[in-house]
Amino acid sequence: MPNRQTIRHPAPRNAAVVSPHMALAVMVSIAATPILLAFALVPRIAVLPAISFAALAMAAIAALAAWLRRAPRHGVKVTLWDVAGALVLIGCAAAMLTEAEHLTELFTTTH
């Protein structure tokens, strides 16, 4: 009878284990970076329109990538279509919160 032994691979000792709290902190900091950059680089009046434009542009890129890759529209996991939809929602919410009279003040000059 042949000798059949079960080969067991020990867990790698140098595998990094990230706690869920650390993963959440990293994801929140990555998500907050563009918003903080908008506050730092754009005049305060135009922050929401800039966030709206950026979110809608990223949604278009995500939708184009999903379309080109023929990503599934329905699934158990989050798909590129889901990301595009979330970005559209964020962009539309930022656009709805924008007040038009503040933008006219920004782009009109009075001498």
Rank of each mutant, 00 (worst) to 15 (best):
L36N: 11
V17I: 11
A46L: 12
A71T: 06
R4Y: 10
A23V: 11
P49F: 08
E99D: 14
N3T: 12
S19G: 11
P10W: 05
H74R: 11
A94I: 00
R73K: 09
A100M: 05
L68A: 12
M27K: 08
I35F: 13
E99M: 07
T33V: 07
L87E: 00
Q5C: 06
P20H: 03
A25H: 12
M58K: 11
I30L: 12
V17P: 05
V76G: 08
L80V: 00
A11N: 08
G91C: 00
V42Y: 15
A63Y: 09
R13W: 07
N14F: 08
A40H: 15
P10G: 01
H111F: 14
T104Y: 13
L56W: 06
L36Q: 11
G75F: 01
R13Y: 07
T110S: 15
F107R: 02
W67H: 09
P34N: 09
L37E: 13
F107D: 03
T98C: 06
V78F: 02
T79Y: 03
V28S: 00
R69T: 10
R73L: 06
R13A: 07
A55S: 14
R73G: 07
H102C: 04
H9C: 02
M1E: 03
A54T: 12
I61G: 07
L41E: 14
